[in-house]
Amino acid sequence: MHEYRMPDVGSAARRGFVAGLLAVLVRVPLAAAAEDAALRARLDALERALRSGDADALGASVARRGRIHVDLRGLTDGQQVWGAGQLRVAFAELFAERRTSGFALQAATLSRSGEDLAFVRGTWTRAAPGGPVVESVSFTLRLESGDWRVFEIRTAR
């Protein structure tokens, strides 16, 4: 005899509920992990750009449409607020005139502020006639549409 069984609505709902719950529980850490990964990727790109003196690569790391605060002691006339394209040209000139011999971000200085700001410092070594110049440079990044972008570059005093 064929036994008719009612569809197990309860178990389907349970499965859906569990899946939803899992999604909610997992979503936040996943999103945070994705942001951390994006930040790490951006910092790697930033480090590569400055180390190799690649202004275009640096331009790809800054805020896409907006202003970037730049204050580099001895290189800029006080604090400057530049557009992204302007920064690319200005840094290309700067890299051409003052050859970069080394750059390293200091991972220990990375700090997050809220959900969408991050600060980090790096050590920039430039060739100069009187010997290499080593300076600490501070970067401020913000989260733009899931991607971290630099919007402040400043020589730390």
């Binding site: 907006g66 605060h69 700090s111 502020s113 969408d116 700001l117 913000r142 919007f151 730390a156 005093r157």
Partner: peptide, 22 residues
């Protein structure tokens, strides 16, 4: 929108960061 507002919102943490560097 993208520059000033985060600085206001994160003023305290931003100042902490500056203080740390100082």
């Amino acid at each position: 929108e993208a520059d000033f507002a985060p600085r206001v919102r994160e003023l305290s943490r931003w100042r902490t960061h500056v203080l740390q560097a100082t």
